[in-house]
Each structure stands twice: as structure tokens, then as C-alpha cells.
Design a protein around this nucleic acid. Sequence first.
DNA 1: CGCCAGGTGGGAT
DNA 2: ATCCCACATGGC
Length: 237
Amino acid sequence: MVKTVFNVLYRRLLQYYGPQGWWPIRNKSKNKGFDSGGYHKGDYSYPRTFKEAFEIILGAILTQNTSWRNVCRSVSNLNKENLLSPESVLSCCKETLSQIIRSSGYYNQKAIKLREISKFLIDKNYLSITKPPTREELLSVWGIGDETADSILLYAFKKHFFVIDTYTKRILFRLGILKEDKKYQEIQKLFHKNINQDLAIYNEFHALFVRHSKEYCMKKPYCSDCFLKDMCIYGKL
DNA sequence: CGCCAGGTGGGAT
DNA sequence: ATCCCACATGGC
């Protein structure tokens, strides 16, 4: 039963790694770089102001196919330049914006994406954490795909959308739960049907997949030391 | 040096 | 629908 496997998997990941404290956000008090924990502790780092939600939205776009480390600099730069609001992003010239987010890669495309989401939020008047856009509306914005939309809905607006990324697919495939060619919506449905409708679990489970993909289940995995090898079929073929 | 990183959109088939 | 590619920096 998939439900049982998910339950066991979640518990074991959480026990091994502990809470990941997503979404990571600038640590104001320390004023240096990023800190995955320590921000809104016990509240899974959910934003309390629209500015914080917008920071998450920007980060979700900037981290597309890009390491989080590279995104941190960009978001810090955006903060330094007072660009953590849709209005200020739009008022910034495109070339300047590109350079500010340079470290995230794809900076020309991403500068456009940041402007597009900013324009969307202003046009539709989605400028409060209690007034989220729909998934369909987000997907209609140029530069927002399935994963980014769900990241925004879950981590910025506390809506129940499970985030599927390449890591999630890879781990589930290696565990023998999924076939390789499953599509985003199908995988998401699998989670929605088989785990509790609990924000903390949606939040944490995805973050734990990312963590596990970095520690053990990378492209070239360290199966021999992996604490999940007893329930995994990968490498035993 | 090569490979990878919390994807997406566009164009050809 | 599905495959293929451009997009680009920084760490290891």
C-alpha cells in the first residue's frame, strides 16, 4: 500500500534529518546570508507579511534548475536594493535587475520572470498573504510552471499543494514506487491521495526529499551507507 | 576540465 | 502529446 510506504518514508526521513525549516528565508537578525532555521521557529518559516511571501516567490523562480546557494546571493542583493516588492521590481530597469540576480544563472530570462510575476500580482491585486492566486492563474504567468506554482502556493500562501521536483521523482523511482515516465500531475495526485492533508507534512516531506537527494540519493548515489537501503530496490538489481 | 543545481517555454516532429 | 534544446552562474 502506497499510503503505508509514504507514511514510513516520511517518518524515517524526519527522524534521520529532523525538521528542515522551509522555506529558507533571509535571517534578518543575523543580517548575513541565509539560515534554514531560526526564522519563525515552530511555524515552519511561513511568511507573516506579504514582503516575506514575495521573497519566497522570487526565490522559487530564481532557484529553477539552480542551486540554492547561488540564489541566496541574488535575494540578498534584491533586499539590499530594496526590491522585495512587486512595485519596486517593476520600477527597476531590466538590465540592472539582470545584474542583481546574475548569480542565479539564466539571469536574462529570470529578470523577465520576476517582472512578469510582479505585474501579475499587482494587476490581480494579490498583495496580501491571505489572498492567494489560484494554481491556474499562476500557471498562466510566463515563467511559472507546475513546481514553481506549487512552491508558491504551499510555502508563500500555505495552501495544500504538494511540490514535485526531480528529486522527488528520482527517490520514488529508486524506491520502486514510481515508474520513470510518470507525469507531474499524476505524482502529485499520488501524494494528495496518500498523505494527510497536513500543511506541516506537505512542507516538511518535500524539504526532506531535497535533503536526502543531497546527502545520499544524488545522481550518483551513496547507496551503501543509505539508511533507507532496506526499503529500496535501487542498486540491488 | 566536466558535471550538476529545489525548471520552463518554445519549436519541431 | 512528446522529444529536444536554450537558458547561465558557481561549486566541486
